[in-house]
Design a protein around this nucleic acid. Sequence first.
RNA 1: GCCUCGGUAACUCAGCCUGGAUAGAGUGUCAGCCUUCUAAGCUGAAAGUCGCAGGUUCGAAUCCUGUCCGGGGCACCA
Length: 561
Amino acid sequence: MKQEVISILENSLKKQKLKISKQEIEKFVEVPPSSDLGDYAFPCFFLAEKMKISPHQIAIKIRETIKYKETDFEDITTNGPYINFFFNRKNLARKVVFEAITRKDKYGMGKVGKNKKVVVEFSSPNIAKPFGIGHLRSTIIGNSIANLCEFQGFKSVKLNYLGDWGTQFGKIILGFTKFGSEKKLEKDPIGHMLELYVKISKDKKYDEEAREWFKKLEEGDQKAVVLWRVFRELSLKEFESLYKKMGIVFDVYSGESDYQKQMKEVVKILKEKKLLKESEGALVVDLNEYNLGVALIQKSDGATLYMTRDLAAAIDRQKKYKFVKMVYEVGQEQKLHFKQLFKILELMGYSWAKNCVHVEHGLYLDKDKKKFATRKGKTILMKEVLDKTISLAKKEIQKRTKLNKGELEKRALKIAIASIFYGDLKNNRKNNVVFDLKRFVSFEGDTGPYVLYSYARASSIIRKDIPTKKFEVSELFDQEIDLVTRLLNFEKVAFDAHTSLNPSLIANYSYQLAKSFNEFYHSCPVIGSEEIAFRLALVEAFRIVLRNSLKLLGINVLEEM
RNA sequence: GCCUCGGUAACUCAGCCUGGAUAGAGUGUCAGCCUUCUAAGCUGAAAGUCGCAGGUUCGAAUCCUGUCCGGGGCACCA
């Protein structure tokens, strides 16, 4: 539609003997702030200098030369310095609704990613630590980004890169040998491991010994390896039950521990490329000339570091997956780390380094606006948040309906997930979020449950009568036009969200769409009205698009609430 | 100190990339709407020096510079 506006303008400007390129026209064509100003608009300010008359007069002059009889436009008017284009709404409504109910779950899909692979690393919790809300953001956003890519035709590799290696394991192993209890470990594995970790971290006198234990682990010490394996298994089991509840499935579980062999190779290549420097007994890559400080590759005791493992992992993944893009969905506090990582890959001569991107998100902060620190035992557990949200959802359901237990549980879980996912994704991911459970689980207004509720309302209409593709469009109410326009926008929003790797665009869109529907629902009765055929189809189109849109966020709809 | 992200209504935020028509939502407050497709909803009102100061521009919340405030990062953690 935009292209038609542009070519109409191009023809008209030619008649004015103005040399304005198509690209330049496209730059100025915009969607007006409100629909009574048209569906597209063209501001004439920039022509004032060339034509030496006021923008208002220019608009009138251009308008006079426009002919649009054979187009999809119903009216083209001027309003001060603007030329406003109005679609033929009936045609538009027919087209959009028909397309949505025909293409169903394919409606809005793109194909730029056909035959291309994107690796998305996300969630990546640390073994032996509880799954806190800190990892929640990565999990939800990463999952959504993978969905956004799939929707544009990419094959996504959802990769969970477990924090299962590093000095922290020295601490936990040391803690277990000193204060561990098998009984406690069996009862509440992660709780016990956390307890040990905090205990060891608190006292600096253990630091040295903890480092030694990690060194032993890297060297394959029997006792260390056995304990490590047990810790890993137990943690993974807990994480998996959480993912299952959240409806998140990974294609690959990988971990830092997978790269012990490759790390030596990485160090070797770095040496060959003369990138490595010795400094205070440790091996580093000096990135000062890029204003990125110094990256530690190997500790003075020979043990490896996060950076070394990430280098090995990146190289391995490019070999394995031949990705056109690799997304790291990790908190903003690791920004420097990833800048260093990508720079080093580039210096090593890997041209694909430019296809790696750190999609950072803001942190959850405590009431004092400080970072939650596991080391101090200060975390909010994901499990806790989920349980609280579920019980709140149950209360809300029971206020309205009586259900059997199974159905109640099922709905409450879906509502809770929608609430948590939506609540997180609607925010710009770069913002820090002060964690406030009350606000987090609110069910009114711009929330997950609001969106689900709109869908359930639509479904209840469809249950009363079946929509078909045979419908006529008569005079449209404003609310119907609004809803149709929203449906039309979905494709572009989905595309933009993928380009900018920003799920909040979809969250905001879903809300706007649901809002438009609720306004329609309020003022346009469907069952029993004269326009029943069209309105049923419109409601069905709404359901399809909202379902598609929420699916991109990782949220499943509910037929009844 | 350096790097980086943020500062928009009482509160939480969208809009900023790609500058345009009266700066938008939600919460909270106030006033309305359920014998009619689910009131987790809808309608309306009050509420804003877009942190501050310059600059660019016909036009700045949006771009540039400076500055203040808050978060995060800056070598043996991840």
